[in-house]
């Protein structure tokens, strides 16, 4: 549904977005991650046709956003970063207006407004003026606006920003539900959201895509992913290290003595087989009669992966 090819955006001499390409199919929920100023909002503004790209192409449902903007925009529901709403209108008036601009008329419009008011739990503020709304309600009003025409494509810039924990949960559930037959792109700074509802995630930094994959794939990029840790009592660290490092499935092992307990970590030869590795280690410990506890397989941590990819020092070491 969404196809982004070699997107570049320059502000003066500064490249805010640099050769970004990806596609999103129907049924996919793409999480857009990256530190502040990475270029997430700029990319989304180009996808929705608000700012033209310096280079590159965006097509939405087969319509080029530069050549055929109106047709492409029809398919898109968009929540801008600041969740802007016309402050001189009531919530109901605002939703009515956006529905009208989307070409929804008559009883269909009442129905559409009622539907999104329900989806975003706006019943209690329906006739309140937008400028007296709390931040979370304003955010939800703008989110409701993006859903009013039941679009095939949803572009949401930080949809859970400013919401209370219950509403965050609600919105994630909503995205998951909607994602079954839509193409959704949303940006976020909350990594659990990626696990909670994305089918795929992109990490972008300094305008460039650094990683693109399912949450599990991203997690596996972590250096420690797939390694097995355990603590052994009453056995010398050296013995533990050489015995575990000698395992067929192990690439190497480390062990150190902390407070009289040996903390060991075994790295797998093949990450896909880490279940086997844990089993093999368990067998060794029983055979050797080691006293151990906390045998645990790391599945990699998304925040660590995120930091590893976007931390300035790792960037520097990569370019060296």
């Amino acid at each position: 549904m969404i196809k982004v090819e070699n997107l570049v955006k320059e502000f003066g001499t500064k490249k805010a977005v640099n050769r970004v390409s990806f596609t999103v199919q129907k049924g996919e929920i793409l999480g857009f991650l990256g530190p502040n100023g990475a270029g997430k909002s700029t990319t989304m503004r180009m996808i929705t046709g608000f700012i033209p790209p310096t280079e590159g192409r965006v097509t939405v449902g087969g319509h080029d956003i530069s050549e055929n903007p109106v047709e492409a925009k029809r398919l898109i529901g968009y929540l801008p970063e600041s969740a802007p709403c016309y402050s001189d209108m009531s919530v109901h008036g605002f939703l009515n207006f956006t529905a009208e601009l989307r070409g929804i008329n008559g009883t269909k419009r009442e129905e559409a407004v009622r539907r999104v008011v329900g989806l975003c739990s706006l019943e209690s503020v329906l006739h309140q003026s937008v400028d007296t709304l709390s931040k979370g309600f304003r955010h939800r009003t703008c989110l409701a606006q993006s859903l009013i025409h039941d679009p095939e494509v949803l572009i949401l810039d930080e949809p859970t920003d400013g919401l209370d924990p219950n509403q965050k949960h609600e919105v994630r559930q909503l995205l998951k539900r909607l994602g079954q037959n839509k193409a959704i792109v949303f940006s976020t700074h909350i990594l659990e959201e990626v696990d909670a509802c994305c089918t795929r995630a992109i990490i972008i930094d300094h305008g460039e895509v650094r990683a693109n994959g399912t949450p599990a794939e991203l997690r596996a990029q972590h250096d420690l992913a797939g390694s097995v840790t355990l603590q052994v009592h009453g056995t010398p660290a050296e013995t533990v290290k050489s015995r575990l490092g000698g395992l067929m499935l192990a690439q190497k092992a480390t062990a150190s003595l902390v407070d009289g307990v040996v903390h060991a970590r075994v790295y797998p030869r093949n990450r896909a087989m880490n279940g086997e590795l844990a089993k093999a280690i368990a067998e060794v410990t029983t055979k050797e009669g080691w006293q151990f506890d906390e045998l645990h397989t790391e599945d990699g941590r998304l925040d660590e992966v995120f930091r590893g990819i976007t931390r300035p020092d790792t960037l520097a070491s990569k370019t060296e």
């Binding site: 046709g49 608000f50 109106v70 600041s82 802007p84 402050s87």
Partner: peptide, 12 residues
């Protein structure tokens, strides 16, 4: 107030 972004991404 930023509604320009909303208005100009409508199908008009």
């Amino acid at each position: 107030i930023g509604t320009l972004e909303l208005l100009l991404t409508m199908p008009i």
